[in-house]
Nucleic acid binder design. Structure first.
Length: 234
DNA sequence: GCAAGGATATCG
DNA sequence: GATATCCTTGCA
């Protein structure tokens, strides 16, 4: 994906990210998902953004150039993948909230199971087996339907922070579909029509207060089955 | 409905 | 150094 797009206004970058592909391609195999849901966090004034306290050890990459990964841990157990946007010096990012699995599905599923085990303080074999069974029964389109689930399925943790997602040689990168193709890669959505983009308030940021809780900065492909959150917000 | 998890930012 | 908080998930 062209870095200039991500270096532009975050909401425009978010629209470009919808329908693009998240690719992890390395010794673990090749996994591809189509991005169907993102959330924008824009500037130090955004009270929902990690940048609201200014530059810190954790959020430093948000203040750098566009196109790099920012992976943080939330609630002590879930990692979340963000794409840094806007020019160098301007802290902003897009949280990848959901992707539709397209390639490497069994590897995505295997890392979901591995992460479920790692998130348990005490892991009796029975619970581990129950996790594995539950995840084995999940339909493909729910494997990465949520920000913590995207990171789990792609095997990402905060150590991935800083990886250049615009470098075609990177083990984790963003790719756009063939320019000639008018069709969405997904079997979902209306044939022969560009998928509609829906904007809603962001999820899980009640602490930020108004106007930030109401800003329609969550973007998704309308009606796509891999979108996370309440069905009313799909 | 709510507990689980640990790093983070901020406060004494 | 202590503590309230957190861009979530899956269970009761």
């Amino acid at each position: 994906m062209d870095r200039a797009v991500l270096a532009g206004p975050t909401l425009a970058a978010g629209r470009a990210l919808l329908g693009a592909f998240l690719v992890r391609d390395d010794a673990t195999g090749r996994r591809v998902g189509q991005i169907v849901e993102v959330e924008a966090y824009i500037g130090e004034v955004d009270r929902a953004s990690h940048a609201r306290f200014g530059r810190t050890a954790r959020n430093g990459v948000m203040f750098g150039p566009a196109g790099h990964a920012y992976v943080y841990l939330v609630y002590g157990m879930h990692a979340c993948l963000n794409v840094v946007t806007e020019p160098d010096g301007s802290p902003a990012a897009l949280l990848i909230r959901a992707v539709e699995p397209l390639e490497g599905i069994e590897r995505l599923r295997a890392d979901r199971v591995a992460r479920a085990g790692a998130n348990r303080r005490d892991t009796p074999a029975s619970r581990a087996a129950a996790d594995a069974e539950r995840i084995a029964r999940l339909p493909d389109h729910r494997l990465a339907s949520g920000p913590g689930l995207v990171a789990a399925a792609f095997g990402l943790d905060p150590a991935w922070t800083g990886v250049d997602l615009c470098d075609p040689a990177s083990p984790l990168r963003l790719e756009v579909g063939p320019a000639s193709s008018e069709q969405p890669a997904s079997r979902h959505g209306t044939a022969n029509a560009a998928p509609r983009i829906r904007a809603t308030p962001r999820i899980g940021i009640g602490y930020a207060g108004e106007p930030w809780t109401s800003r329609p900065w969550r973007l998704c492909l309308a009606g796509h089955p891999s979108v996370s959150g309440p069905s009313g917000l799909r």
